[in-house]
Design a protein around this nucleic acid. Sequence first.
DNA 1: CTGCGCAGTAGTGTCGACAATTGGGTGGAC
DNA 2: GTCCACCCAATTGTCGACACTACTGCGCAG
Lengths: 249, 249
Amino acid sequence: MNAPEHITEDPPEPVRRAADSSDRAYRALRQALVDFRFHPGERIREARIAAEMELSRTPVREALNRLASEGFVTLVPNRGFFVRALDIDDLLDIHELRAIVESAAFARMCRRAEDAQIAALAEYWQSVQPVYAAHDADAILEADEGFHMMIAKASGNSEILALLPMINARIRFIRRILIDHARHDDDLVADHAQIVAAALARDAEGGAALMKSHIELTVTVAREALKDALLRLHSASARRSPTATALKD
Amino acid sequence: MNAPEHITEDPPEPVRRAADSSDRAYRALRQALVDFRFHPGERIREARIAAEMELSRTPVREALNRLASEGFVTLVPNRGFFVRALDIDDLLDIHELRAIVESAAFARMCRRAEDAQIAALAEYWQSVQPVYAAHDADAILEADEGFHMMIAKASGNSEILALLPMINARIRFIRRILIDHARHDDDLVADHAQIVAAALARDAEGGAALMKSHIELTVTVAREALKDALLRLHSASARRSPTATALKD
DNA sequence: CTGCGCAGTAGTGTCGACAATTGGGTGGAC
DNA sequence: GTCCACCCAATTGTCGACACTACTGCGCAG
């Protein structure tokens, strides 16, 4: 086993280059933004982020550039990156866009998806029922997003499938809060059940309308809760430093 | 007008730091991609691009990262950036998404926009009529995009307004080709006139349907032309180097 | 007291350099 | 002739450094 010198022996440190510093920075920053751990409008100091994540500014800047084109942050030349100030209207706009896109995705699925895909949707819905019963907010959120993503996938439109995750990322924190506070799990379950039924019946118009009201109702009902949540998050992020161990994971 | 000596005189090089290398790289690369001056699937060598644009790899990488999150290119770790291979199905999907979003934008505009905004749309439409008559493809494209952007703006939904330019950027080259070749200016003019009429009448449903068919018809009618155009562009980009002076401007 | 100019400092924008990785080519063993 | 291991050139991922810009606080004129 002792390797001859002329042959490259097993490196004692097979630490293959991670090559994912940018990606890690991207995910950590995005999560921090989604969780509103930054004050809206706050300037993001690259050096600070880099120091906290124990890497150089380069990957941090790459991550910020990606986040900028996704609308999470804005770039002011020679001033730096700033957290996008999401207000209640923006949130409503995003939800409206989501309703538009997802209801269209549903209609397209009804018209063009194969039976197997719709069956898979119904089956998935069946399989995650216990999750809702367990009242685990994180698990419910995951199941919920999964449900909607399956419809986007079954729509067969790759652009819709690519757009939805970007929308989801920006409203995930709201959905998370709503699941926790509004405690309208039963409504969610009922809506989804109706949507699945419409899918099985290939009722494009009816199902699309259901989807639209499903999403819009969520917002309408929770508008006040949203306002409170935003205020609370803002003041929280203003009080304690949004950094420190915040980006460690 | 002649500057006094005791005041910092005009530096021989008043070139205030541009600080826009990344932005220039972004725009140039995006334009090159939109124009299909890169072979689909082609690997993008950062050093080469940087050398051609006479700057370092850093701004090129920043531009590529932004383009990656916009879907123009894909990033394979440790391999680099690759031009996204757009096929005919992708193009149809993008147009479908555009039809979904824009028809919804129209309906929302009818329901919520102020009279002044709709009047501005009608006025804009009037003002660009000569452009269509002049048969200048670039000018027509600009007028066309402007028309649709005004509707997105009048929709009052900032997310729609932000999404549309991203969609437009990716299908601009097609619209450009269609305007040149299909020579269906008259249809465009007729459609737009109908859409304006629906807007003035605040006919949300009718106008949305018009908008949808306006966009979808464009695709359907031109499907064959699209295939040809894609083939032609691909072979062209394969033959000659997609670089050289290609990125100079 | 108020407002303007000015230096000092914090922070961004860009660069060149270096280590790690990939893929292709070369040579030898079978 | 084929296949495998190894080496090497080309390219990416990350870093530290430096020039330049924007903001802060202070001094000074009005």
